[in-house]
Measured scan of single mutants.
Amino acid sequence: EYSEEELKTHISKGTLGKFTVPMLKEACRAYGLKSGLKKQELLEALTKHFQD
Rank of each mutant, 00 (worst) to 15 (best):
E1Y: 14
E1N: 01
Y2Q: 04
S3W: 08
E4V: 10
E5Q: 09
E6C: 10
E6G: 10
K8E: 09
K8P: 01
K8L: 14
T9P: 01
T9N: 14
T9S: 13
T9V: 12
T9L: 12
I11L: 10
K13T: 08
K13L: 09
K13W: 00
K13V: 07
K13Y: 05
G14T: 00
T15L: 05
T15V: 02
T15F: 00
L16R: 01
L16A: 05
L16G: 04
G17P: 06
G17M: 10
K18S: 15
K18R: 12
K18H: 11
K18A: 12
K18E: 15
F19T: 10
F19G: 03
F19V: 07
T20A: 05
T20H: 01
T20F: 00
T20Y: 00
T20D: 12
V21T: 14
P22V: 05
P22N: 14
P22R: 12
M23H: 03
M23D: 07
M23A: 12
M23K: 12
M23F: 06
L24M: 03
K25Y: 03
K25N: 15
E26Q: 15
E26S: 12
E26H: 13
A27E: 00
A27R: 01
C28S: 04
C28V: 10
C28G: 05
C28T: 06
R29E: 13
R29K: 14
R29I: 11
R29D: 14
A30W: 07
A30Q: 14
A30S: 11
A30T: 03
Y31G: 02
Y31L: 10
Y31P: 00
G32L: 04
G32W: 01
G32M: 02
G32H: 13
G32E: 05
L33Q: 02
L33C: 05
K34S: 11
K34Y: 10
K34W: 03
S35K: 02
G36C: 04
G36V: 03
L37C: 11
L37N: 07
L37M: 13
L37Y: 11
K38L: 11
Q40E: 15
Q40W: 10
E41P: 01
E41V: 04
E41K: 04
E41Q: 10
E41I: 02
L43E: 11
E44M: 10
A45R: 08
A45S: 10
A45Q: 13
A45Y: 01
A45E: 11
L46R: 01
T47D: 10
K48N: 12
F50I: 05
F50K: 01
F50G: 02
F50P: 02
Q51L: 02
D52E: 15
